[in-house]
Design a protein around this nucleic acid. Structure first.
Lengths: 220, 220
DNA sequence: TGGTCATGTGACTTGGAGGTCACATTTATC
DNA sequence: GATAAATGTGACCTCCAAGTCACATGACCA
């Protein structure tokens, strides 16, 4: 947590530091973010920075509290349009309200998302070409599925690709991270429990994709 | 691309370098990976490293080609059990074969996944507590949905939470990254097209979650 | 054997990182 | 205005990164 000195600062100055930190983290991520640059861009001295914060992590965690506060404030004035929503309606409302928040506070949201969930394969520049191969393969698959009548032609191909891509990565991360904890990873992957989990995740995806949104609306 | 010198190396030595690089990237990610450590752990000199590779990125890209080659080789001997699979059966087979590969080559897979898609909120240590709040909220929601009869009680709560979490993040990344390209992000988010895209993504999720895997099997 | 070309080496340079501290300046208190 | 407390400052420290280079070693061939 930042020291009291920082919290006592005049708003303008404190905001300058916060802004510089946001810019730094959103451009460079956590590891490559430089305190020297934050200090230079916010017009304070190095010594002051260390009078305000323990270290880089401390500064970042402060940004988290800022985001949290602003989100709380934002959502305070927002209420679901109806009390009688089911869980999914509520979830949809929540996500959309969240996206409104994101576009109201894009800079801080981006900085924190960059650090917490990374650049993301889809949007990171560096490995775009590499990722493109997977995207193309998914795209071929879904177009074939439409041709074969396995998926409704009205399904948005790009959207389906995003869904397949998201799940490939999510499952892969899950398997790698959970699997590493096991003493025999291969055995664990082949176990009925693990296979069932993968199946269930893919069923959720498949069932969702097979139906079009129009079918969904007409058959809730 | 690595220089010819590197490719001429005796297998054992080349492998030592590759192994050290894998360890380094999988432990520290790209930014924080240190050539000095790679060099120390592979028993070659700094000078040699720069005779083999342009720089850190060059070394990492070589790992990508190694992975690609090993994957190609691995999948060469693997064929889908049947020719008459529909697209989704094929996709499921592909994912599972991919996970088998991951567990056969966990170290290099992890190294590359760590760099390309990051540690992931679910598994990264540093911000676990922060993320936990979202997980708990999702968990509450899905349990409520089950109580209300909106979701089948046989649905695996943890799995549903993973689905909701994955989509929150994916949609958020999508909105932030695409939105940043627009001149008026807020307007873009509120546009019919964007809202429709979000809706569709959520419908895919919702439709998948509402059904249980048993219902799915009995009603393909 | 001598010569030359490919490969290996680690001390060295440069640069920037995080972090400290003695001192300067401002602010508050009497 | 004098004194004390809080705040601000940047030169300086150490550390370690990436990258270079003059030289050493080995391999191969005439």
């Amino acid at each position: 947590m930042p020291k009291q000195t920082f919290l006592n600062l005049p708003d303008e100055k404190r905001q300058a530091v916060v802004n510089a930190a946001i810019d730094e983290f959103s451009e460079f991520g956590f590891e490559a973010a430089s305190i020297n640059r934050i200090v230079a861009n916010s017009g304070i001295s190095k010594g002051s920075f260390y009078q305000y914060f323990e270290d880089k992590m401390d500064a970042f965690k402060y940004l988290l509290t800022v985001l949290e506060r602003e989100k709380a404030e934002y959502f305070n004035g927002k209420h679901p349009p109806s009390k009688n929503m089911d869980t999914f309606q509520y979830f949809r409302w929540m996500i959309k309200a969240g996206m409104e928040f994101n576009s109201a506070y894009p800079r801080i949201t981006q900085a924190i998302s960059r650090v917490l969930i990374g650049e993301g394969l889809y949007y990171g520049k560096t490995f775009g070409e590499y990722h493109q191969k997977a995207v193309d393969a998914f795209s071929m698959m879904i177009q074939q599925a439409i041709k074969r009548g396995e998926v409704d032609p009205s399904v948005d191909v790009d959207l389906a690709v995003m869904v397949m891509d998201t799940w490939s990565n999510a499952i892969s991360s899950y398997i790698l991270n959970e699997g590493m904890k096991q003493k025999d990873m291969m055995k664990w992957v082949r176990s009925a429990r693990t296979q069932e989990k993968i199946d269930k995740l893919l069923y959720v995806m498949e069932y969702g994709l097979r139906k079009t949104e129009s079918q969904f609306i007409s058959n809730p």
